[in-house]
Simulated scan of single mutants.
Amino acid sequence: MNVLQKTGAQIRKIRKFKGLSQEALAERADLHYVYIGGMERGERNITLLNLEKIARALEVELQELFRFNASDIEDEEITEAILATLECRSTEDKRRILQIINLIPQNATKKETD
């Protein structure tokens, strides 16, 4: 899956989570619904300006459009993605996230990697 397909899939996932149709997203972003469909299928090379419009229309930060499925990336990339995500979080958020991570049994993690 290339970056256009991954970005389009992420936008589709967020759009559906928010309960929006392609037409509703297109209207909010001041884009054509055919463009939204092509973008979600990875058929369009999306401009940065249009990505910004889509992020605003979805009411998410721009970087959320690039948070791809962890199964598509390797272990080292996962670690880098986690660290990059944490950089923009508050200290309180980081504490909460650490508490959540510590709730995951270590033997469950070992089974997944075996």
Rank of each mutant, 00 (worst) to 15 (best):
N102S: 14
Q106I: 13
V60I: 09
E61W: 08
E77Q: 08
D114N: 02
V34C: 09
I82P: 00
K18F: 13
Y33K: 09
S71E: 15
K94H: 05
E59H: 10
Q106D: 12
L103W: 13
A57L: 03
D30G: 07
A24W: 00
I97H: 02
A84S: 15
L48P: 08
E77V: 04
G42N: 04
V60M: 05
E87H: 14
E74C: 09
D72T: 11
I54G: 00
E61L: 08
E76L: 04
L31Y: 03
D75W: 05
Q10V: 02
L83Q: 15
L103P: 05
A9G: 14
N102M: 13
D30Y: 09
N50H: 09
A108S: 10
G8T: 01
E40A: 01
L62W: 12
A84I: 11
E112M: 14
K6S: 07
L25K: 01
F17M: 05
K16H: 14
G37H: 01
Q10F: 10
I54V: 03
L98D: 10
E74Q: 12
K13I: 00
T47G: 08
G37P: 00
L62T: 10
G19N: 08
R12A: 02
T91S: 15
I54M: 02
D114F: 07
N107E: 07
E80I: 15
K111M: 15
T7R: 02
D93V: 10
T79Q: 13
V3R: 10
L65H: 02
K53G: 06
